[in-house]
Design a protein around this nucleic acid. Sequence first.
DNA 1: GTGCTGGCTTGACCGAAATCAGGGCTTCGG
DNA 2: CCGAAGCCCTGATTTCGGTCAAGCCAGCAC
Lengths: 247, 247
Amino acid sequence: MTVGQNIHSSPIPVLCHSCEARHSGVCGALDPDQLVRFAETTTRHKIEPGGALIGDAEPVYSYSNLLSGVVKLTKTLSDGRQQIVGLQFSPDFLGRPFKLESAINAEAATSVTLCSFPRAAVERMMKESPELEHRLFKQTLNELDDARELMVTLGRKTAPEKVASFLLMIGRNMHSGVDSAERPTCFDLPLTRAEISDFLGLTNETVSRQLTRLRADGVIRIENKRHVTVDSMSRLEQRCGGRVAPL
Amino acid sequence: MTVGQNIHSSPIPVLCHSCEARHSGVCGALDPDQLVRFAETTTRHKIEPGGALIGDAEPVYSYSNLLSGVVKLTKTLSDGRQQIVGLQFSPDFLGRPFKLESAINAEAATSVTLCSFPRAAVERMMKESPELEHRLFKQTLNELDDARELMVTLGRKTAPEKVASFLLMIGRNMHSGVDSAERPTCFDLPLTRAEISDFLGLTNETVSRQLTRLRADGVIRIENKRHVTVDSMSRLEQRCGGRVAPL
DNA sequence: GTGCTGGCTTGACCGAAATCAGGGCTTCGG
DNA sequence: CCGAAGCCCTGATTTCGGTCAAGCCAGCAC
């Protein structure tokens, strides 16, 4: 199982060597040969919080793998009302295939590192490798599942349930490690209060009030505004409104 | 361009001959040979309003093409609160590939006709024909776009804007023919008031009030509770909250 | 130091939509 | 014919979350 031993097929590019996208992300679909050709077209970027990745109604020239950090996908009404329609975590693929213009904005919520490739390179690879398209398809299906879950939260949950659901979602995405229902789980919120409110269809005041209430009730602790400790995940779950996802 | 002339490749199955799914739907991905083999496994159904197509948390044994009618996709909280997370029109493909259990319910909103195939047949065909998977991928991307559009409506629009947005969406989907911003457009609502409220995150009372208000303001006319005439689409658009989709 | 800015919290008040309630209409089946 | 059920409309009242306003605190420029 050593790498780069095959004389004819090229060794795996240095950059990709330890890249998470090669394992769980979409690049895992490519064989070493393809990966080498593909890697020639890629560039790495670091983007600070607030930096724009994709502009609404702008033509899209490149796609990216998200290597670290959190990206928020937003839509804005002309009078400024904003809704976050999705969050992306590593090793998600960023971009809307088969459409020149994006209908949404993508913005760095935290510090973000990207591996970007020109639009054409991805489309060429996708034609060449059905497995690549297959992985993108699967990720899109997961995004659709997430989107529909969020719809229930937006349309039918109360403010306390919304905030609890958000914390649960973030806890599950940000916390790498054992997920025990009873052991304390902690993580840093990747969003400000205002952003959380744009995610949940609330105001920052309401989000703030619900967080203090959760704190007062001993469900969570908060340090430095951002660092959250959930003592009992199951108590948090109870506040999310009846279970939707059956398991 | 006559069909079924080639002696070796089979003629197109009779059932599929005039089927919309063969043109704009996913079956267009298959060549006549594949279509014949595939058609052997299909069955047609008619389902009356309220009939269940896919149950939450039930294993899925078949996928379908929606040939006519409207299907609503719903999610329900344990206390009964419900959210419609999507509507499907012909010739949409119904079902969640790559997952044994559906996380949502699918139910006929109107009378519905389906062309169903066993799970295994679709998955076999998908492996055989990347073009089939490609079409499913594209449909899924469109569903994701729709879902995110609906999220803005759910999270950030007022009740009047929600109802106007719903009418606009239905008008665009149900009205086959020329879309003029100024010519009267009419269509039948595929949902009851209660269902519209589950779609928009409102109550049926609020939906009813907003509809009467639109009627009082001369934006729409309603006959027999279900048949809607929009005299000026542009006036309706003005009531949807600032444009999201840039065009 | 001072002043400014931006994110967060808290309180007082208000209003949009939910809830509660009643009544009309149509479609059933007896 | 009648009554029951479902869907829809409308009015009165309540309430949850939004709006407005003030203050705190950390970071930062000067």
